[in-house]
């Protein structure tokens, strides 16, 4: 299939979406997802490149699927922020009860080698990589004890290897899950406490930018942040910690954000609120957060319905129906006049 080089038409270059193409079986659907991202006016995607998919045995890389995604994302004019993680079985070293997220410290060098191989292969095509995802959650840390010093060691092991392979690569520290977990919780660490501990462990020297997950949950985007509340502006508290540790010069990337509009979930808002809050979140960030490079919405589209509340976080349905929020975000990104009245006023009894 011959696809000509495209350009993203946008007036809001910070608009970005998290795509989920790694589990998409049909190449045609990958192409369609990327084209719809461009048409949305998003100039970047966050895309997961699971180590377990590309190095199924030690030093035996198989990049076909990554090549395809990256080639076609570039053809659509999209920048790629690559998230790396997910451990192949051989690197889990037979740990009992291990999961795809279990990375024993003996395998940090192997992960670093994968990240370096990725950075070298896609030099000039991928400018940003994220090292791991939400390491403050027990689940994401393979049910091993969550420990910022361990993650600092992973960053340290990876940073030098990647820079040696591709000096231009910007390395993002993995975004922390926004959570209010109390100290000692088996589920994970509070994100603010974790970031402080990460800096205290000396990790600051081993990342160029911070990835942030900043969901709105029930609050509107302008709601002020507080240490004991999860909302969109919690990102500011993480930024404050960066400043506290002298990292003002480093930018941040919100690599997951948005609201959910499941009709029953207690963490959801109404669809009308979701659309309005999302656009206002971009407006707030554009006006107030000069340190922010990208604001990426979770998520563009799932390959299939989960038949659960996460289905209500997407912009496009698995069968490629564009949701109204897609059109609202498109109008914002491309500077189009949006419809002023998306719904009718509450009816009154005659």
């Amino acid at each position: 299939m011959l696809i000509e080089q495209q350009t993203v038409e946008t007036v809001k270059p910070s608009v970005c979406v998290h795509s989920l193409l790694e589990n998409e079986v049909q190449e045609e659907k990958i192409l369609r997802s990327l084209a719809l991202t461009r048409e949305l006016g998003a100039s970047a995607i966050v895309q997961f490149f699971p180590w377990a998919y590309f190095e199924q045995s030690d030093d035996d890389f198989s990049w076909e699927r990554a090549d395809f995604i990256i080639k076609h994302a570039r053809l659509q004019g999209l920048h790629i922020i690559a998230r790396l993680g997910l451990v192949p079985e051989w690197a889990r070293r037979g740990i009992s009860g291990s999961t795809l997220n279990t990375l024993p410290s003996e395998s940090f060098a192997d992960f670093a080698e994968y990240a370096a191989a990725f950075a070298a292969r896609y030099a000039g095509e991928v400018e940003h990589i994220i090292i791991w995802n939400e390491p403050n959650l027990s689940f994401e840390w393979g049910y091993q004890p969550v420990d910022p010093a361990d993650y600092a060691n992973l960053l340290k092991a990876t940073y030098a290897r990647v820079k040696a392979a591709n000096a231009q690569m910007t390395i993002l520290a993995g975004a922390l899950a926004p959570t209010l977990e109390a100290a000692g919780s088996s589920a994970g660490w509070n994100d603010l406490a974790y970031l402080r501990a990460l800096y205290a462990a000396g990790a600051g020297a081993y990342f160029d930018a911070l990835a942030i997950h900043s969901y709105g949950f029930l609050d509107p985007p302008e709601a002020p942040p507080a240490a004991n509340r999860l909302n969109f502006r919690r990102a500011e508290l993480l930024r404050d910690i960066m400043l506290e540790y002298g990292d003002a010069a480093k930018p941040a990337f919100i690599t997951e954000s948005g609201w959910n509009d499941h009709p029953r979930w207690t963490g959801a808002v109404r669809p009308s609120q979701r659309s309005a809050y999302t656009i206002r979140a971009f407006q707030f960030a554009e006006a107030n957060w000069s340190w922010l490079e990208r604001l990426c919405i979770w998520a563009l589209r799932y390959p299939a319905n989960l038949n659960a509340y996460p289905d209500y976080s997407t912009l496009i349905s698995p069968d490629f129906q564009l949701k109204p929020i897609y059109y609202a975000l498109q109008a914002h990104a491309r500077g189009w006049e949006s419809e002023t009245r998306l719904w009718l006023p509450p009816p009154e009894k005659n």
Binding site: P263, R270, S272, L344, P346, P347, K349, N350
Partner: peptide
């Protein structure tokens, strides 16, 4: 198509025969 902001408004519209 008669979209409303909330499900109860849509049902109000039906109940009020709008």
């Amino acid at each position: 198509r008669r979209p409303y902001e909330l499900p109860r408004y849509a049902l109000d519209a039906l109940r009020y025969e709008q």
